[in-house]
Amino acid sequence: MAPSLDLANLPDADVVTLAQQGREAAFRELLRRYERPVFSLIFRMVRDREISEDLAQDTFIKVLNHIDRYRPEFKLSSWLFKIANNVAIDYLRKRQLDTISIDGSPHAATAAEVEATSFDLTARQESALEEMEARELGSAIERAIARLRPEYRSCIMLRHVEGRSYEEIAATLDLPLGTVKTYIHRARHELREALEHVKGPG
């Protein structure tokens, strides 16, 4: 019988090696370690639980099905965050294209047809957001982050929620180091302005 391993205490690189050897328990351990950080990153990018789960699922399927391509000189988490960020950004870009139609069908000839074929995406999102925030987030900073540009969002979350260095963020997001610093600086500035009215003492 294969020797039983305490996977929880192994470093990522060793767990990946076991996954490359076809051990399902190692795949599950990687999922256990990173499902929350990856899901959180995506959720804070797209702000929809169901879509976030789908995108997080896509991320893990892409990574775990190509685990043999993993290069140990990079952090597994960086690879995961890179894919997660890419799928989230792709989704946001696609949604941005989709939102063109919220003003109504381009084929609508009359004002009534325009009204009938349009829908208020902002209102729908706001109500969903408010519900989500009341239930799960419940803080002003989450709302402020939601208003940041997506690229600022991923940078600021990798920096402060995941505790990554500027260099790691640059490598993860394929951005120049100076750009990462600029994004984080601007994100902090925008967050400070957004939180001006809710800041308490200390």
Partner: peptide, 30 residues
Amino acid sequence: QVVNALERMPHFAPSPLFRDRVMTQVQVFE
């Protein structure tokens, strides 16, 4: 204060069936 608030932000958990859903689509090859 903003940075502290950011660093206190929690991780969210996906649904309990998330891992199983992922594993059904992962090819485990020995």
